[in-house]
Structure formats: C-alpha cells, structure tokens
Nucleic acid binder design. Structure first.
Lengths: 177, 177
DNA sequence: ATTTTATTTCATTAATTACAGAAATTACTG
DNA sequence: CAGTAATTTCTGTAATTAATGAAATAAAAT
C-alpha cells in the first residue's frame, strides 16, 4: 500500500510524537495509519506499509487493542484479521485519557490511600500530613472532574470548547456565587 | 538527612510514576523530595538522601529548573545553592501542563500547519483532508481551552473543581443556549 | 596566590526498551 | 487429519536513555 505524501508525513510525525508521549514509535505509527485509512487493514498490509517486522506489528496491535484504541474487524470471505480505529477524535481522546488515568493516576491514588492508612502517618509532622492530604485531594478532585468532562457527548463537547473564554467567566461566577 | 517512612514511600513512588510520565526517576524523586521538604536543600543533601551520584543530581536539578519547577534559593552565610519547589499543587500542575504542551503539543500543531499549507494537501482525497483538518481543530481548541483553565487562580480553581457535576450541567446548558 | 569548596562537563558503563527474525502455536481448509 | 495460512511467542541484537565517577571548571576563603 502506497501512502500519499500527506498521510506519510502525518504517520511519521505521529510516531515521533508517540515516543514523547511514552508510546513507542511503531504503536503510534500504526494508530496513525489506521486513523487515516479509509478501511480496516490487515497486519500484513500494515507491516508492508510501515516497513517494520511482522512481529512488531503483532505486538503493537495487541497493545493498541488492550488500550481499546483498535478493534478487530472481519471481512467476508477473508480469514485474516482486519484492524480499525475510531475516526472520532473526541472518542479517541477519551480512550487515551482513560488509559493514562488508569496507568498513571490510579496507582498514585492507591499509594496515597496506603500512606494515609498507615500507622506511621499519624506520627508525621503536621506539615507532612497536610502536604500529603492536599496532594491526594487535588488529584482526586481533578480526576473526578475529568471523568465528568469525558462523559460529555462529542457534539456538546465541541460546542463547549468553542465557547472558549466564556467558560472561565461562567465558572468564575458560579464558583463565587 | 533521614527521611520519615511516609516521605520515603512518597519519594520512591513519585520516582516510579515519573518514569511512566516520561520523566526520569531521579528527576521525579528530587522533585518529590523538595516538595515534601520544609526547607530548601543543597545538592549534597539531596545526593546523600537519595543515594545517587552527585552529577546526576546536578543534571536533574538543571532539568527541573529548565521546566521552572525548581528555583535556587540562597541562605545567609552559606555559599552553596539551595533548591526549593513550590508547595502549591495547582501551581505545580500548571507548570507541568505548560511544559508538556510546549514539548508535546506545539510541535504537532506546527506539523499540521505545514501539512495544510503544503501543495500536496489539495491533492488529497476529501476524507484525508477532512480528517487532518478535524484533528488539527480539535487539538487547537483543546489547548486554547486548557490555557484558559490554567489562567484561573488556585482558589477559584479548587472551588470550580469541587463544584463537580454542576459544571457539566452548567456547560451543557450554556452550550445549547 | 594557593588551597578549599562547590559545581558542571564529559566519557564510560549500566539498564532499559524497541525491534527483528526464527521458532512455535493456533486456526482454518480441503 | 494433513497441510497451509495466520498469528504469537521467544530470543538475541540494536538503540536509546539513565546514571556513574573522574576530570575540569569556577568561586571563595585564607
């Protein structure tokens, strides 16, 4: 499969950015490729298009599936698996955030709970206790809040985002009132 | 310097999480240590407390300073540099988000601009063009929005976050109206 | 000015992570 | 139940990144 210059640029860049996001290049590239592709692709097509090892594609797809970013699709009369991803940016964003929360925030909240519950905790200085409590609260509230945002419909969200500055004022007013 | 069990746990965990966040362990540990510490610490104190190489501390601090998460403080009658970080979670969060945006979002927006401006772009299929445009818009609006949120005062923000569910409704109402 | 103290730079080593290619497994077909 | 196609697992290698320790530099004190 030949990629158009624009698609190729996009895929390469996404791969690059992936590494900065803690995602390996191939995983990010595959996702970008599926995102740009009109139809679901087989692992072999992906392999050939990206010029990476077949096994690499296999593992990367596995990872993408575990993050729920990619789904298997079947084509009549073809026993091979075909892979596709959502074309809805908001949908994708939600999945990514959910995954990151699970991997990066939840373990931290877990630790905070343990710290607070530990018998050592009471022995700590007031400052230490306070700092820990504050931090935990902050993270907890923040995740709660993001959960709520993520629950919004794509259309609502886009409208919301486009409201822009108004939001801040709206919120500021409400927060004071 | 001896760490209390709770602080030690916290520092170690933060270091672990750092790696998942794309920050190296030492950098994250130093930040956690300064965050928990009542007073500013010298590089040597940090070195000794964390049990890492002095040069490692030097480089890590340099990185933290470049991200504006750590500042140098001077103590009367002591020629050594002392280092400290803000104890305000929201302040820290803002700095982290700003840094990530700069490193992870801005280059992407840059690429999108280039893609859209390129002569190849017009030759692409409608679907491809649309996908690229949609994605770019999404990212742009999202960053605009987060910029606005980050501009809020800590107190306002905490109130806002605590409003919780109300926000979604508020926003939904406004978005429709 | 020279010794001591503090800090940074740099070259090397260690550790981690990504990737390829072969081998093994699984699932389907005739 | 062969035989083939599809996929995964595994092992080794390459590449990247983190961390060390020594050497170089800079700053201050005597």
């Amino acid at each position: 499969m030949e990629l158009s210059p624009v698609t190729q640029q996009f895929v390469l860049h996404w791969g690059e950015m992936g590494t900065r996001w803690g995602v390996n290049r191939t995983v990010a590239q595959i996702h970008a490729l599926l995102y740009m592709s009109e139809n679901a692709l087989t692992a072999d097509e992906i392999t050939e298009t990206l010029g990476v090892a077949r096994s690499n594609v296999s593992n990367s797809i596995k990872e993408l599936i575990s993050w729920r970013l990619v789904k298997v699709a079947h084509v009549m009369g073809d026993r091979r698996d075909h892979f596709e991803t959502s074309k809805d940016v908001w949908e994708l964003f939600k999945l990514i955030v959910a995954g990151r929360k699970q991997r990066e925030i939840d373990p931290t909240l877990q630790i905070f709970e343990e710290l607070l519950a530990s018998p050592d905790f009471k022995k700590e200085s007031r400052e230490t206790r306070q700092r820990i409590e504050e931090t935990q609260q902050f993270i907890e509230i923040l995740t709660q809040w993001s959960d709520e945002m993520l629950r919004l419909e794509p259309e609502t969200l886009m409208k919301v985002l486009k409201l822009g500055a108004k939001i801040s004022n709206l919120i500021r007013r409400e927060a004071k009132g």
